[in-house]
Amino acid sequence: MNRGNTFVMRQTIPRMVLGLLSASLLIFSRAHGQTATMQTGFDTLAKRAAEARSAGHLDEAVSLYNNALALRPDWAEGWSSLGRIEYERRNYRAAKEVFGHFLQVSPNDGNGAVQLGLCEFELRQDEKALQHLERGKRLGVSDPNLRFAAAYHEGLLLLRAGSFKAAQVSLSSLCGTGMQGAEVLENIGLAYLRISPKDSTPAGTTGPGIVQRVGHAACLAAQKQLDDAREEYRALEQEYPKYPYIHYAVGRFWADMDDVSAAVAKFHQELKNQPNDINSRLEIAAAEYKLDSVAGLPYAEEAVKMNPLVPSAHYLLGLLYLDTDNYQNAIHELETARRALPKDAKICFALGSAYARAGRKEDAARARAAFAQLNKESESYSEVRH
């Protein structure tokens, strides 16, 4: 290469570098300007959306929130606000979709999980609704109104599913909120009397208001006003001694008070009214399990024979067999329960104990590993309900 060409290259290369730097700076400047413009646009839309919502201009607010979210899809507050608007307008399908986006942005937000569950409740997607309400409660719900809504709707879903004992727990938790109106008391009464919301008052019974009165008595007990609760239950039994599950409801009160003998006596009274009732038999067996498993065994065995399709009956019978050192029968019953409810951690725990006592070490290890995994996933959630 001659000196002339070398001189030209030395002059050209710096000019090329300077040109590239200038172009890069121009591109960066334009991109920065676009980003700043987008941020300004987003801020304006977000502000206008909040103002429109506060003014009650919901159609305008929905449009503005959607425009803002198109610019910032990770804006959690925007998804939450938009979802609430759609829920308030009873656009439950749209609200469900919005809260789904919200949970993609904030997957561990308990409020959002509850709101999604409430949408699914309105859409009659009961199984999904119950899962999301329970998940929201486990994650923690900061909004007091949402906490109330979660417990109430969870109770209604459990009633719909016929999970009456679980519904009793969920609905009775509302009694300390000061918001136990007539509708809440009615549903608590339905849970304790084991009446599905879709069913009318049992045929051949009398006494309008008895369901609400049972709910009121249960609420008094939940509030630890035990003397008043006892008096109300006593009056109900005197007035309506033949009403289905009235003695059962009183038995549940005594069982919660850990008075086994009083509870068992009331469940026996219920059996006089309903000789073929398996629920009272299971309650007697569960109460006796606390003190004398041998005494509880016949009632659990009868319940399983009367209805072999109730997983909780097999589970309870398995526990009683295990407690009386009948390990082979315990394993059979607990395996039956586990086949019906494979994701219930408590069943795996009991099955692990039964295998261990029967000398089946490898099976015991597998059952305990399954328990540890399920317990971690479910955070003590149990499918065993009756």
Rank of each mutant, 00 (worst) to 15 (best):
L64V: 06
F267Q: 05
N67L: 05
N375K: 07
S170C: 03
R252C: 09
M1H: 13
N187M: 05
A55H: 12
N2T: 12
N2L: 07
A149I: 00
A369P: 08
G204D: 09
P14F: 03
A218V: 05
P197I: 02
K165H: 07
A36S: 11
Y321H: 12
G215H: 02
D227S: 12
K137L: 13
G204C: 09
E333P: 05
K137W: 01
Q131W: 03
S170W: 00
A372D: 14
H247L: 09
F99C: 07
E270C: 02
T12G: 00
S24M: 10
L220Y: 05
F121V: 14
L374H: 08
A31S: 03
R213I: 01
T6Y: 04
A95G: 15
A167Q: 02
Y289L: 15
A295T: 07
E302T: 09
Q269F: 08
A191I: 10
E127D: 09
T324E: 00
A221R: 09
G178D: 01
R339S: 06
S196H: 15
E231F: 00
N145W: 03
A36Y: 06
C119S: 13
S200K: 04
T205L: 14
F349S: 09
C219M: 09
R339H: 08
A161M: 09
H57P: 01
L156I: 13
D43E: 10
R135H: 11
G4H: 08
A255S: 14
L322K: 03
A367D: 07
R89S: 08
Y243A: 11
G162E: 14
G215P: 01
R368V: 11
K272Y: 01
T35M: 07
D277K: 01
E239P: 07
A340W: 12
R194V: 12
R135N: 11
D227K: 08
L158M: 04
T336H: 06
E120G: 04
L20F: 15
S63Q: 13
A31V: 05
A337W: 02
L45M: 04
A149M: 08
A263G: 05
A49F: 13
L171H: 10
A68W: 03
Q269P: 00
V264I: 14
P311N: 06
A94I: 10
E301I: 02
D258W: 10
A129V: 10
G112N: 04
T35R: 14
D126N: 08
I13D: 10
R338P: 00
A356L: 05
R10T: 08
L282P: 14
L116D: 01
M9N: 01
L185A: 12
L71N: 00
Y289T: 02
F99Q: 13
L351F: 10
A76R: 00
L157D: 06
A354L: 09
E383A: 14
E377R: 15
A166S: 13
C119H: 05
A372Q: 15
F99D: 14
S380I: 04
G41A: 07
Q39K: 07
E88A: 15
L351E: 12
G251T: 11
H32P: 01
Q225F: 04
A129E: 11
A203E: 15
L157C: 11
P244W: 10
L309P: 02
E237P: 01
C348Q: 10
I347S: 07
L116R: 15
N67S: 14
E97Q: 14
L18K: 06
T35E: 10
K198W: 05
R281G: 03
L158N: 02
W79V: 03
L226A: 05
L297K: 14
F7E: 13
Y152E: 03
